[in-house]
Computed example of a mutant assay.
Amino acid sequence: MNRALKIAIQGGPASFHETAAKELFPSATISTLPCASFIELCQTLESGLADSAVMAVQNSLAGPLLPNYRLMDQFGFSITAERWLLLDQTLMALPGQKLEDIKQVWSHPIALLQCCDYLDGLTSVTTKETSDTADTARLIKAEQIEGVAAIASRKAAELYGLEVLHQNVANDVENYTRFVVLSREVPAKKANKATLLLPYPVVKFSLDTLLEKLDDCALDLTMLQPLPSPNPGQPEEWVLELEGEQAACITRALAALETVAPTHTILGLYPKAEAPLPQDRLAGCLSSILTAQSELA
């Protein structure tokens, strides 16, 4: 009998990361290893306790989770797969609680950001950031906390016996997050999507040349974002994501990059997942590509 794959995730049972892990490994028996933070997730994978990790990197409303790209680079991990997951952000509280009883809403900061329009409409209700959506639901039930609601998945409400006060409280019901599989192994040689880090001087002085070369490779440039430096005073790097119909497109692009950015870092070569929304509806991606040229000119 094959042993279960151990997959590190941020959060615990009924978290969106757990759902994503199950969808990313549909034919495997997996055992998820809950982690309280993305740093802990990376440490768990680095230690060898996990075979792989599943990490959120982008939300259609909140944009890219840029610190996670930095973590990939720091730990030397590679992206091997990706998947978009529709999030059903749900407001829940102890059974018997009504919306008018709620004085505070707790959830992960990214979830709160995704639901900010709804939260702004709640009178005299404050928010509190927590480490995980589903675990917040568990805590409210375990400690019988009244006057507090959680934002988490409907699965979390069912698992922990909480009452749904309002469904689909995100700013847009089409609220998707992109999750990736991280590995300690070197990325594959051939794939139709690439995630790269570019040194600042390349983007500052050679962006037009870079984009021209990429245009010749029949590729879609889906992300170009500045990644703040971990050390004050050092130049930032930029995250670049490319997609092509064929693996040969990525191969040509990487060869072209060698002439412009020989010191680029490959964070992953992997099969692209079909985006659930047009690129102009994915927050923080194309807008940064369009403004980068004018800002860096």
Rank of each mutant, 00 (worst) to 15 (best):
G233F: 15
E258V: 00
A255I: 02
P230H: 11
E245T: 05
T195Q: 06
T251F: 04
C217H: 06
L224P: 15
E241L: 04
T263G: 00
K204A: 15
L182Q: 03
V181G: 07
Q225Y: 13
P262L: 03
V186Q: 13
E258I: 00
A188R: 09
P235F: 02
L227R: 10
T265M: 02
P230L: 12
T259Y: 14
P226F: 09
T259G: 02
V239H: 04
Q225T: 11
N175Y: 02
V260M: 10
A261K: 03
M223T: 12
T251G: 11
A194C: 05
G244T: 02
V169H: 08
K213W: 06
K213Y: 13
E236L: 11
K213G: 15
P262G: 05
T222D: 06
R184Y: 03
V203P: 11
T251C: 06
N175C: 11
A170S: 14
K204C: 12
P201I: 08
L240K: 05
I250P: 10
L207S: 14
E212H: 14
L227V: 07
H264F: 14
R184I: 00
V203D: 08
Q225K: 11
L198M: 07
L197E: 03
P230G: 08
V203W: 11
G244D: 04
E185I: 00
V202L: 09
L242E: 01
E243G: 02
K189V: 06
L197R: 13
Q234P: 08
D208T: 14
V239A: 07
S206T: 10
F179Y: 15
E236W: 02
A170N: 09
P232I: 08
N231W: 13
A218R: 14
P230S: 11
T222F: 05
T263P: 00
L196G: 09
C217F: 04
F179H: 09
A255W: 03
K193W: 01
V186L: 07
R184H: 01
L240H: 05
V173L: 07
D215Y: 12
D215A: 09
C249A: 03
N192L: 06
S229W: 03
V202T: 14
D216I: 04
A261S: 15
E185C: 01
Q225W: 12
V173M: 07
R178L: 12
L242M: 07
L211A: 03
S206I: 05
E212T: 15
P228L: 09
E258A: 10
V203G: 07
V239W: 10
D172R: 15
V260K: 13
E258D: 12
D172M: 03
D216M: 04
V180L: 06
T265F: 01
L207I: 08
L254W: 10
G233N: 14
L254H: 08
E237Y: 04
L227Y: 09
L210Q: 09
K213T: 01
L221Y: 05
P262D: 06
R178W: 00
T251H: 11
T195F: 03
S206R: 15
I250G: 13
T222Q: 03
Q246K: 06
V260C: 12
W238E: 02
